[in-house]
Amino acid sequence: MAYALQQLINGVTLGMIYGLIAVGYTMVYGIIGMINFAHGDIFMVGAFLSLIALTGLAALGISSVPLALAITLVFAAGLAALYGWTVERVAYRPLRGSFRLAPLISAIGMSIVLQNFVQVSQGARVKPMAALIPGGMPLMRDGTFTVQLSWMQIAIVITTLVMLAAFTWLVTRTPLGRAMRACEQDLKMAGLLGIDTDRTISLTFVIGAALAAVAGLLFLLYYGVIDFFIGFVAGVKAFTAAVLGGIGSLPGAVLGGLAIGLIETFWSAYFSVQYKDVASFSILVLVLIFMPTGILGRADVEKV
């Protein structure tokens, strides 16, 4: 019982990180119908930027943890946003209006470019970092086993939920969000109504990348180790989460992330760690067979 509760906590935490990355996938897919495969690598870049910032701040002697985190957040999200903007500008915009597969190939290319860039500039070895927010609270004791809820886990869950609420609000209530949804439905018509569609798409990439950097920072703080390859694995998982939740839906992305996180954690805990990915992707296949639009995806209703 206590063991299951601990797995639940771990699974939810992992799921929230996947969910946060998945939101970026879903936003970009929503607006231009393209899978941005470089998104996972922007997440990885965000984690590295966070590590650089935290190391730099420690060297400068800034010992206040909240201050260091705030500066790191702004630094990592800002620079990652710049990466996101550049990727869109260089690799996707010139291919807009080209055949459907072209930006997809270009996205895979950008993913490899970012991975190799970080591998070369930062080294291929795993980078460790000492825990910045240690500790937590014991929830329950069962014999020798103590269920532990760490501060970091609470922080991750709260951050993801706050981000989800903020972005849902952004998309549904603000002029920028309306413009994004208009571009999603009819890019050309949106342009004819005076919306600068290129700018709206750029902003979507910028926002998605900043969000990925937040996820990167959380990942770094939670696991304490990163390398240049984390973006690939997390990216594939987050993409799966976005599809599972219903691509295009923000709450769906987080819900999908939760599902993948829980399946993975429970499978590892009770069956075998080696087969955890097999389990989560099998579930994905099953869900897509019976619910092709995902958990919260809406089917396009066409009035005839």
Binding site: T174, P175, L176, R178, A179, R181, A182, Q185, D186, M189, A190, L193, G194, I195, R199, L203, K303
Partner: peptide
């Protein structure tokens, strides 16, 4: 924009007034 509400369709058309540049959009 079939998936948006009737009112939102009319609001999108006033996008330039509501969000003349990125800075205004972020303030909004």
């Amino acid at each position: 924009f079939a998936g948006m509400t009737v009112l939102e369709n009319l609001m999108v058309a006033q996008h330039n007034m509501l969000m003349p540049n990125v800075a205004r959009g972020l303030l909004a």
